[in-house]
Design a protein around this nucleic acid. Structure first.
Lengths: 141, 141
DNA sequence: TGCTCAAACGATAATGATTCTCAATATAGA
DNA sequence: TCTATATTGAGAATCATTATCGTTTGAGCA
């Protein structure tokens, strides 16, 4: 249960935190901005202060429950830490985000960091391009 | 000359733009925030409005003269587009930025995008870790 | 179950980065 | 040089995020 996750993370179990965690777990969209979390909760009748949303997201991130990404588009999104590590590809037209994992790239990153004298602790790889989904506004045909 | 670059970019040649471009070309530090550009110019006796700095950087980026990066640390930096493409590794302690290029990673990215149905137009890869420079505050020994 | 207190909440003020507004000024071309 | 237009600078406005602070709530215990 979500209560467990919060307790394990050393966080007090509160209604707002449970609602936010639940939203992150049950939404079709895995990548959300703080604003989006706030809005979706409000639309679902759960009005939680925006400050609380930001606080909770920061705490969840510190606890390792979620991950934060700064895309070059400028938007900051949060995503539930679930399953193995992966990177992202973002459509520059419709904003759709897909995930991928590539073993070769992961390995090369470690080697590169080592060769430059760095102890690698994290990385961010995001590809940008045009998706060819029929729903994408840039889709031809 | 810089005037050429501006003209080629379709931008009117003005004093502020020349100063900013010159700073980017002649500074030891290749990665700067808008604030930094503003401050360095001011320290050099060239007081250029902050709004103008932001505008010029945005125009230079649109013209392809410089590139903007949003690091996960939150800072937005600009860098002169010079020489071949490269990615970055940032020290999480001292903020030092190094560049690198890896052919294997570049190729894998294209393949991945294609396999996901995207037409790749750009990418951002940043590694985060601890550098082992003697000047880094986290350096041991 | 009720009590107590620190932690968390929500509203809103504050902050920091970036963009916009607009009157004054500078540039490119005739 | 003159003119039309683009650019500049100062400061207001905006946007995302964080801090403040009085009120409320959760967790442990009698």
């Amino acid at each position: 249960m979500d209560s467990e996750e919060l307790r394990n993370a050393g966080l007090k179990v509160t209604i707002p935190r449970l609602k936010i965690l639940s939203l992150l777990e049950n939404s079709a969209e895995r990548h959300m901005t703080a604003e989006t979390v706030y809005r979706l909760l409000a639309e679902g009748g759960e009005v939680i202060g925006l400050a609380t949303v930001y606080r909770a997201l920061a705490q969840f991130e510190a606890a390792g429950l979620i991950t934060r990404h700064h895309f070059d588009s400028g938007q900051t999104v949060y995503e539930l830490e679930r399953g193995p590590h992966h990177d992202h590809i973002v459509c520059i037209r419709c904003g759709r985000v897909e995930e991928f994992y590539d073993k070769v790239i992961e390995e090369r990153q470690r080697e590169i960091a080592a060769s430059l004298g760095f102890t690698l602790s994290d990385h961010a790889l995001t590809l940008y391009g045009e998706c060819n989904s029929p729903d994408c506004p840039g889709h031809q045909g």
